[in-house]
Amino acid sequence: MTTAPAVRAGSGWSDTQLLHALEEVVETELNRHLKAAKEWMPHEYVPWSQGRDFDGVMGGEAWSPEQSKVTEIGRTALVVNLLTEDNLPSYHHEIATLFGRDGAWGTWVHRWTAEEGRHAIVMRDYLLTTRAVDPVALERFRMEHMCAGFQSDNRHSVLHSVAYVAFQELATRVSHRNTGHHCGDPVADRMLARIATDENLHMVFYRNLLAAALELAPDQAMRAIADVVTAFRMPGHGIPGFERAAARMAIGGIYNLRIHQDDVLQPVLRHLKSLQLEGLGPEGQQAQEELGLYLDGLEAQAVRFDERREALLARKAARG
């Protein structure tokens, strides 16, 4: 964890004050990230020899589901993951507007965007080359999703946005990794593992920045954490048919309440010691209490989901 500069600004911090106060932390984390990140080439993860022409102007073969070795749940998750990555221009606009384009903040924003751009490139090339997805339906979904754009749920506050991406980057990493495990193709599994490595480094950047914000402005940061955790939605929630796809992914073990609780929320909150943090003012204490109560309720929901999922899978196994 990087320690924030010892700067104070009355009882509360404006976004502008926070951006300036955290600049040194951003620079430190950026340098750490650049040392840890490894260059990789999207084209090296695509089995180009499997490719052939589609129907249309090239006069090739029309797509059909049996042409792919990817499982049905793998196809659903890959499409959701790709369409989420496709909205990168909207995400870039959001964070560049909030964090700025100058100094260490700006350098990070552009670096993050460049690294994230690889993910959509390699996933789309893989899906089309291996005929894992209907190319016409995929393009129509992409157009609809990107034309709708993306607007953050997080009040356009620096601390809310930092808190959101700390959890969201880990959620995306987990979703990619679990998709690889369930897709039935070792080539896709290797590709998604490579993407997940990027997402994990991005999570560490934002998690460490959030830890510094907790030292700098503990009450405001705790309020942001509680707000984000209790109202969390994945950035791809606007994808056409997202709720149906998310339900399939939940049952299929890609991403569900249990995974969200155990593999996303708890690791970040434990690292930050969010529920153990002392010395908070009234606002921070209230946010901390809300967070604890919410997590208790979420655990109860996750237990019920686990029971329903196990019963459903048992019925399917009995029929099969």
Rank of each mutant, 00 (worst) to 15 (best):
W40R: 05
H33A: 10
A314M: 04
L257R: 15
Y45F: 14
D134H: 07
A37T: 08
V109F: 01
D227Y: 09
A213N: 06
H237A: 13
M1G: 13
A193S: 14
S274F: 05
A188C: 15
Q220D: 05
G74I: 09
P5D: 06
L275C: 01
K35C: 04
R101V: 08
R248M: 14
R124L: 08
G117D: 02
L128V: 02
Q17R: 07
H43R: 15
R309A: 11
L277Q: 12
R319F: 12
S152V: 07
A104N: 11
G149M: 03
E299D: 07
V7L: 14
D53W: 02
F150G: 01
Q67G: 03
A196H: 04
F167Q: 07
A4Q: 02
E85A: 09
A314T: 10
E299H: 13
P65T: 08
E215F: 06
V79F: 01
H182P: 00
T197H: 07
D185W: 02
S64V: 06
D125T: 02
Q286P: 00
N154I: 00
V229H: 14
Q276G: 03
R142N: 10
F99Q: 12
I195C: 09
Y45C: 03
K273V: 00
H260G: 00
G253Q: 07
G12T: 08
L98N: 12
T107P: 00
L295H: 04
S274I: 01
G297T: 04
R8L: 05
L34Q: 15
L18P: 13
G279V: 01
E61M: 12
R248S: 04
H145W: 08
G74Y: 05
D262W: 03
H110C: 05
Y45K: 06
H145A: 12
C183T: 05
L88P: 06
S161Y: 09
A314G: 04
L257G: 12
R118F: 11
A226W: 10
G253L: 05
P267L: 08
L214R: 15
L88A: 10
G117E: 00
W112T: 02
M249R: 10
A6K: 11
I73V: 15
V109D: 11
D125W: 12
R75K: 15
M1Y: 02
V7S: 12
S161P: 00
V204L: 14
R244P: 00
I121D: 10
F54I: 11
Y294S: 04
G238L: 10
R308W: 00
Q168E: 15
R270L: 02
W48M: 08
D296V: 04
L216A: 03
P267C: 09
G12W: 10
Y126E: 07
L192T: 06
E85H: 08
A287S: 04
R194Y: 02
H20S: 14
A302T: 07
S161A: 03
A166C: 09
S161C: 02
